[in-house]
């Protein structure tokens, strides 16, 4: 097993209390983990721990990286971004190459070409000289994916990537992620369990504690036991494939979600 990150009995939180308790999870090469859980359950805190943005109160986090800086590619929630900030699309992508040792140096023409190539691959090469504010939510999301990918990371983390994305691109994005998964591990946070369960290999259910399911199928009983996100059970009138109980309607559901990926209840 090619392990990338290992969390062992990690407890973490902020000044106003503990958010995560006794979390243990190992992320290995080519993993595709969907992180689900209710709001405030600790999904984003888990990501911050993995990114090294916050330190655990107790427990250990091991990173098995030998590359500086480019180990993890990260796609933050778009709500964090000031969209009126005067920065060009090309520069946003290049910022993915930023690292501790790179304060001084300028970006080589090779770096710049790589940024443009990535944008081309995403079909937005023509927007390279535009600024963030001139782009639609979906276009900006592609830019951020390029930024996460430019350092050829071993682990790609996406925090609620479907929030601001148009439905057409949402589906396209998941297919792209499956391609990327051949070369890297992926962790994706989503409250929309129904959609991501088609694409992920395993599911981590985070609600203060972390429950890891080594498959992309969870039973209703398990969810109830974990006090996990119940919105998937009340996900409209349509029964959901993620629930084994509704396995008989699998094909029907599958088609439903492919043709109407907008069927979300946020």
């Amino acid at each position: 097993m090619n392990e990338l990150i290992k969390l062992d009995n990690v407890t973490a939180g902020y000044d106003n209390g503990i958010v995560l308790r006794d979390v243990s999870i190992t992320v290995s090469h080519q993993d595709f983990i969907g992180v689900i859980g209710p709001n405030g359950g600790g999904k984003t805190t888990l990501i911050k721990l993995i990114l090294g943005l916050i330190k655990p109160v107790s427990g250990t986090i091991q990173r098995f990286d030998n590359q500086e800086g480019s180990f993890i590619g990260y796609l933050p929630q778009q709500s964090q971004i000031d969209r009126k900030f005067p920065i060009t699309v090309r520069d946003i992508v290049l910022s993915g190459l930023m690292s501790a040792g790179k304060g001084l140096s300028r970006y080589s023409s090779k770096d710049k070409k790589q940024a443009l190539d990535l944008l081309d691959q995403m079909g937005i090469g023509h927007l390279a000289k535009r600024t963030a504010g001139e782009l639609s939510g979906g276009q900006l999301q592609r830019v951020f994916i390029c930024r996460a990918l430019i350092s050829s990371p071993k682990l790609l983390i996406l925090d609620e990537p479907n929030t601001f994305v148009d439905n057409r691109f949402e589906h396209e994005m998941y297919e792209l992620l499956q391609q990327f998964n051949e070369n890297m591990a992926i962790i994706i946070i989503s409250h929309d369990v129904g959609t991501i369960s088609y694409f992920v290999k395993t599911i981590a259910c985070v609600n203060t504690y972390l429950h890891y399911h080594p498959s992309n199928i969870i039973t209703e009983e398990q969810l109830a036991g974990y006090n996990c996100p119940l919105q998937i059970i009340t996900h409209g009138d349509v029964p959901h494939t993620v629930l084994q109980k509704h396995d008989h309607s699998h094909d029907h559901d599958n088609e439903h979600d492919h043709t109407h990926p907008d069927h979300k209840h946020d």
Partner: peptide, 20 residues
Amino acid sequence: FYRTILFISFDEEYARSHNA
């Protein structure tokens, strides 16, 4: 430091995740 200033200003948390 133009680029570092630009990148940190645009997305501080992302810069932090890259150990800037």
